[in-house]
Design a protein around this nucleic acid. Structure first.
Lengths: 327, 327
DNA sequence: CTGAAAGCGCTTACAG
DNA sequence: CTGAAAGCGCTTACAG
């Protein structure tokens, strides 16, 4: 069996209390005793049981991460950064891919609570979170408004939407469409659309909006884009609110014999590493993914430490235009 | 504070033992008592503390996942499937992005052990795993040989490498180069290279191999590919052992005014959803990612349950040629 | 059908 | 400077 503190104590000829003290570097211990204990730990190849520690300390150092899916490059990269920063701070990450399905999200939430996570980072619209947050659970949302008291971290979506639309207008596009997810929720990402609509109206044009119902379903994307071509054959500019949509559009356009950017210009959103390598010609609005991760964790840790001093309820991080050839 | 079993017991007017029994559905309980307890649990909004359970049961239902990075679409998708299958079976996933760095891998391994994971799925070359596996830790490797006794799950790399090379030869390429990661380790993925080398020799040609030292570093990729063009301007066929390398090559080729597939044909490896959407023109060898995940978990659970009956030490899952226009 | 007691592996007052 | 005792929240023999 795995050695426990008692085994170490016996071998070193001291009490478990003493072993615990050298483990945690707490209280006074003579160097001689410390050495004895260290030697015993090495000999037995002893590692403390963090489950027992958690039970006593009421501190798991565990962070729950709920997001749609790491298959999506934006969330894949966000997950990488979140986890890596957590690890560097001594936190561990329990991963939950909810695919935005409410029932899954609720199960995951319960699972995280049972496992005594210290805090949760949410990238999905999990309303259940709300109740637990009120009961003192530390929560940070990424690109989601969950409640008045849950801090939100996001890229500057409005500015990004504005940059994208502006670029298409300046490029001389006459008929600019938006490809977006469906809009049940009031998310910050919805500001990308708002910027588009505002700008179109400012220029006296009617917004043309296409919504993709199942964001993570290829078929669903193709259907909507086909419809777009069917209903708006004169489209010559597209702002897609993420790079996957942009790529789907470009594929469909190309297979219809349209040239990008000759016949139709395209701007995406996200600017993940993956998209930049696989589709470098895409002009897109680049989110500061690592900075988003860093900021979210920063705020979450303040909540966990109950430093309700002055962390911001909403943080908008700057975006950058990444110029390719598609617009 | 969070309610505990004792609070439920008091409210229901029974003993903690009884509450535990209804929680676990063990032993006989009268329906009347069960109802009383259920009601008390609802009223208090009680959830069992899994940390305490784990401590007693010596079973955490936690699976550790060590891989290079979820930023890479192959691992992002693999992670999604692994986690989702785990969740459906009542297991939870502790995520570790090691970036293939040995020191990180060792720290992660120790962390997982301290947290009493029931098993580990490894997609990196963590030699340390070896020792712990011998001490009874359940381990499954994906695309890695870690020891004689650690089961490996992978796609049929040799067959995939053969398909890719064959295709280029049949397409009439005269000068076919391989772009691969560096080859310190004897991994199954190395069979992709072996198939290429074997086939080239069979056709009486000299293998041309370019190795990318830092797989997850863009700069490193570009340097090697530039060198390839410099040293082999006559290259007219490339087998890249993953889609990211393939994309980098295509970008570099295009920016040098070469046409793909006109001047040079390219075949990749992996065939992730992401790459298929962002770079649909890429001809590639598609790994059955979900099946790999399912198989790995299957085997891991058998190890955990100590069903050392007959799980295979090596599983090679079939690949498929995904025909784009790049070759 | 139900409960009192002991224990999972640790830590922290409290004594000495 | 070190140790005995109690307790973190649960579960499981063992009685009754």
């Amino acid at each position: 069996m795995k050695p426990k503190i008692e085994d170490v104590a016996k071998l070193a000829g001291v009490s478990p209390t003493t072993v615990s003290r050298v483990l945690n570097n707490r209280g006074y211990i003579s160097n001689e005793t410390r050495d004895k204990v260290q030697k015993a730990m090495n000999e037995l190849n002893y590692f403390p049981n963090d489950v027992a520690r958690t039970l006593f300390n009421k501190r798991s150092n565990l962070i729950g991460l709920i997001l749609p899916t790491t298959s999506n490059p934006f969330f894949g990269e966000l997950t990488f950064h979140l986890e890596n920063i957590c690890a560097s701070l001594g936190y561990k990450v329990l991963l939950c891919n909810s695919l935005n399905q409410i029932d899954k999200e609720e199960k995951y939430l319960e699972m995280l609570l049972r496992n005594q996570v210290d805090g949760i980072i949410v990238g999905t619209h999990n309303r259940g979170i709300l109740d637990y947050h009120k009961q003192g659970l530390a929560v940070v949302a990424i690109d989601r408004y969950l409640s008045e008291t849950i801090p939100v971290v996001s890229s500057d979506n409005y500015e990004g939407g504005k940059m994208a639309t502006d670029l298409l207008i300046e490029d001389g596009c006459k008929c600019i469409a938006l490809i977006d997810g469906v809009g049940e929720l009031e998310t910050p990402a919805r500001l990308r659309r708002k910027a588009y609509v505002d700008l179109m109206e400012e220029y006296g044009r009617a917004p043309i909006i296409y919504e993709i119902p199942e964001v993570f379903d290829k078929k669903s994307q193709q259907d909507v884009i086909s419809r777009l071509f069917h209903e708006c054959p004169e489209v010559d500019g597209v702002f897609a609110t993420n790079d996957i949509f942009a790529a789907s559009f470009i594929n469909e356009a190309t297979s219809r014999g349209k040239n990008v950017p000759g016949d139709v210009k395209v701007v995406g959103y996200d600017g993940t590493e993956t998209a930049q390598i696989l589709l470098p010609q895409l002009t897109t609005i680049k989110q500061p993914i690592e900075l988003i991760a860093k900021t979210a964790i920063d705020i979450l840790l303040k909540e966990i430490e109950r430093e309700f001093t002055d962390f911001p309820l909403e943080t908008r991080l700057p975006v950058k235009l990444s110029k390719g050839t598609s617009a």
